[in-house]
């Protein structure tokens, strides 16, 4: 079944502060949408609303035509929404391999099983190892996550998402905190996922070369509101976008130019 995801008038307020303000958008399978905006624009909060860590004050998240706004994060994950976190969120005392295996296991519905045959467990494990190879973490498989350098933890964050094999991939600044030679493996992985015509990919990313290489579409958030949405060239040329970046973020204009 092809996947469809749409947000309608999605809004969340924290006290008096409107962090996401009436955002509406429809995402199509096979399309990679990059979400940009200055720090505090509401990108991560928007992701939290889609993957269920936060519930909207008003508005809806629709998946395959169903309103999932009040579903738990677990229910959304099982329905095919996968999320990697900007602030690395792993299982620090477990091994790298166990971390990924947990995601594979959840997808396969094997969470509660006590009596898995050894062969079936091996299958889970082998798949987990494959996901580790994809992000170049094979050598670290047996280490506890807490022993990993930050860059490797960022890679593992992405491996967990890949292991969920979701229909909607959400990456929140996946290469932030990675060194220049680490990032390409992750970007390759995202490019490969983007090639699948049945997946929706949402990507929060600042680096303009990455945005150019991957984006089919760009959405700009500013103060929680959606201020631009369209093909990369058009969005980048909009006066309002240039204004936001010139006004709010001094470093960005050169990157955008």
């Amino acid at each position: 079944m092809t996947v469809s995801l749409s947000l309608s008038d999605l809004t969340i307020r924290f006290g008096g502060h409107v962090a996401v303000d009436a955002v509406s958008a429809t995402f199509r399978p096979g399309e990679l949408t990059v979400i940009v905006g200055p720090n505090g624009a509401g990108k991560t909060t928007c992701f939290n609303l889609v993957s269920g860590q936060l519930k909207p004050t008003s508005g809806q998240v629709m998946l395959d035509g169903r309103d999932i706004s009040n579903w738990s994060p677990a229910a959304r994950a099982r329905a095919g929404i996968g999320r990697a976190f900007q602030l690395t969120s792993l299982f620090p005392d477990l091994s790298v391999l166990e971390n990924v295996r947990l995601a594979v296991q959840a997808r396969e519905g094997q969470g509660a099983s006590l009596w898995r045959r050894a062969r079936a467990l091996t299958a889970l494990r082998d798949e987990a190892l494959q996901h580790l190879a994809d992000v170049r973490l094979t050598d670290m498989a047996q280490l506890p996550v807490s022993a990993l350098p930050h860059g490797d933890q960022r890679k593992l964050e992405v491996a967990l998402l890949a292991a969920m094999r979701p229909r909607v991939f959400m990456f929140d600044e996946p290469t932030a905190g990675m060194s220049v030679d680490e990032a390409p493996a992750i970007l390759d992985l995202i490019a490969r996922i983007k090639g699948d015509p049945d997946r929706i990919v949402l990507l929060v990313e600042h680096k303009m070369d990455v945005v150019r290489a991957l984006a089919d579409r760009i959405i700009v958030l500013h103060n929680g509101a959606l201020v631009a949405d369209g093909p990369p060239d058009e969005v980048m040329a909009l006066p309002v976008v240039r204004e936001i970046y010139l006004g709010a973020d001094a470093a960005a204009p050169e990157a955008m130019a």
Binding site: Q53, A74, A77, S89, F91, M164
Partner: peptide, 15 residues
């Protein structure tokens, strides 16, 4: 153990 380590992420991957 995953629930002990990070309840939020355990929920986010579907448990």
């Amino acid at each position: 153990e995953a629930i002990r380590e990070n309840e939020m992420r355990a929920e986010a991957i579907g448990y």
